[in-house]
Design a protein around this nucleic acid. Structure first.
Length: 141
DNA sequence: GCCAACGTTGGC
DNA sequence: GCCAACGTTGGC
């Protein structure tokens, strides 16, 4: 099962907002980048990902799960190719894992977050997933 | 099809 | 507020 990382600026869409949306979840819109779009299209229902706050906080704060696979973005023009997926909040990290912490961990030096810092939806490898879950004080399963 | 100019993102 | 990274646009 693949894992993912979703970046959002808290003032636009925060972890708290995602939690309030409950099990019903919400669609993840606003992706206007082809690399991110390809990631959205690869997602399957039930796959989990990290929820990362950019700009403010700069830390991974929670875990979300895909509840609906890619479909056309309702906020885009009809002719445009953009898609959204739907996700719901699963649980917060006991200890948020900050960007500074990730930078200080050699085993995470190859993370997409380090190398492709502007990509808003990123893949996370199995090893990265387990390590960050452990650092965050939650069960990776 | 190349590449310079420009806009946007996001860390600092 | 600055600047680096990167995607996109548009002239040639």
């Amino acid at each position: 099962m693949a894992h993912w990382l979703y970046k959002s600026e808290p003032f636009k869409w925060s972890w708290d907002a995602q939690v309030k949306a409950g099990d019903k979840g919400t669609f993840w819109d606003g992706v206007r980048n082809h690399a991110a779009k390809l990631n959205l299209m690869r997602m399957k229902v039930g796959e989990r990902g990290f929820f990362y706050h950019s700009n403010e906080g700069k830390e991974i704060v929670g875990i979300v799960e895909v509840t609906r696979e890619a479909y056309p973005d309702p906020t885009a023009e009809a002719a445009e190719p953009w898609v959204v997926v739907e996700i719901k909040a699963v649980k917060p990290l006991k200890t948020p894992v900050s960007l500074a912490t990730i930078k200080g961990e050699p085993r995470l030096a190859d993370m997409a977050l380090m190398k492709l810092s502007r990509l808003s939806v990123q893949p996370v490898t199995e090893a990265e997933w387990e390590l960050i879950c452990t650092m965050g004080g939650v069960d990776p399963a």
